Amino acid sequence: MPHGMDNLLHHEPASSPSPPPRRPSTHSRYHLHVRQQPIAARACGAGDRDRRPVDPPPIVQILLTDFDAESQDDRDILEDPRFTVGCLLFPVSDSSPHIPTPEDLPPEGEDGVARADDTFSTPLLSGKAFMSPFFVNADPDPNSAPTHPSYENENPPSPGLQPNLRNASKLHQPATFFIFADLSIRTAGLYRLQFRLMNWGSVEDTGQSMPILAEAWSDPFRVYPAKDFPGMRDSSILAEGLKELGFVELKTRGKGKGKGRKRE
């Protein structure tokens, strides 16, 4: 893990009672899409040996405004190995599983850039919380693939709003994924994951602080005590395809081998 990266997720409790409000990234062309949502997990123990991965493993995808699959420049962006996505864990209320307010989130500097010394702590989350990109020349599950957004001469939407999607062929379209196959949570409860896209190249090229290029939230998902966990689900077509394409860290379960199917 690059120096200072771990501090983005694991910090001492906040010393300021009212952190400044977050500011939207100026890099509006970048978007993150949670391609595979987490659904459930079994709470793991305090030691590193008791690992109970979130199921199914969250899979996040980069989308680019007005992406052109025929453009080498756009393909070069997707293939940039310096991208990384970090993951933060937030408990939410059972009665109101809302996205946390700005007061719930890590503070930022005056220029809207997340700092390596931000004051925030997520001690319940363990495993690989930062993932490198996994690029594929053709999406392994085009039927579930999102279309890249297009604003069609409109102003970019406010943060949190879904951009308009253009109708474009998704067959044989390249894609870049961040696959969180090794996340565990220590305590039962209801949670959301926040994903943040960054690029170490901006630090190497300019020497400035690393900006957050895009953010996305998972749906709320339940972490169960061991006795209540309903079991692991069958792997998705997307997960099986990504493993076949070389992401060996994914542990897949063929049809009918998962235990977490719907109960009557």
Results as ranks from 00 to 15, higher is better:
Ile77Met: 14
Leu78Val: 09
Asp80Glu: 14
Asp80Leu: 04
Asp80Gly: 04
Pro81Ala: 13
Arg82Ser: 13
Arg82Cys: 03
Arg82Glu: 14
Phe83Glu: 02
Phe83His: 15
Thr84Asn: 08
Gly86Asn: 12
Cys87Ile: 05
Leu88Trp: 06
Leu89Thr: 00
Leu89Ser: 01
Leu89Tyr: 00
Phe90Ile: 06
Phe90Lys: 01
Ser93Arg: 14
Asp94Cys: 03
Ser95Val: 01
Ser96Glu: 14
Pro97Thr: 12
Pro97Arg: 09
His98Val: 13
His98Asp: 15
Ile99Ser: 09
Pro100Lys: 10
Thr101Pro: 00
Pro102Trp: 05
Pro102His: 13
Glu103Lys: 12
Asp104Glu: 14
Asp104Ala: 15
Pro106Gly: 01
Pro107Leu: 05
Pro107Val: 09
Glu108Ala: 08
Gly109Lys: 05
Gly109Ala: 14
Gly109Arg: 10
Glu110Ser: 12
Glu110Lys: 10
Asp111Cys: 04
Asp111Leu: 10
Val113Arg: 08
Arg115Thr: 15
Ala116Lys: 06
Asp117Leu: 01
Asp117Cys: 05
Asp118Lys: 12
Thr119Cys: 03
Ser121Gln: 13
Thr122Glu: 05
Pro123Glu: 13
Pro123Met: 03
Leu124Tyr: 01
Leu124Thr: 02
Leu124Ala: 12
Leu124Trp: 00
Leu125Val: 02
Leu125Cys: 03
Gly127Asp: 07
Gly127His: 02
Lys128Gln: 09
Ala129Pro: 00
Ala129Arg: 02
Ala129His: 05
Ala129Ser: 11
Ala129Asp: 05
Ser132Leu: 14
Pro133Ile: 10
Pro133Gln: 04
Pro133Gly: 12
Phe134Thr: 14
Phe134Ala: 10
Phe134Cys: 10
Phe135Val: 03
Asn137Asp: 15
Asn137Met: 06
Ala138Met: 06
Pro140Lys: 04
Asp141Met: 01
Asn143Val: 06
Ser144Asn: 15
Ser144Ile: 10
Ala145Gly: 01
Thr147Gly: 15
Pro149Ala: 05
Pro149His: 07
Pro149Trp: 04
Ser150Val: 12
Ser150Glu: 09
Tyr151Asn: 15
Glu152Leu: 12
Glu154Cys: 12
Pro156Ala: 13
Pro156Tyr: 03
Pro157Gln: 06
Ser158Gln: 12
Ser158Asp: 15
Pro159Asp: 12
Pro159Lys: 08
Pro159Ala: 08
Gly160Trp: 07
Gln162Phe: 02
Gln162Cys: 03
Pro163Glu: 10
Pro163Asn: 11
Pro163Trp: 02
Asn164Glu: 13
Asn164Ser: 15
Asn164Leu: 10
Asn164Ile: 07
Leu165Gly: 02
Arg166Leu: 08
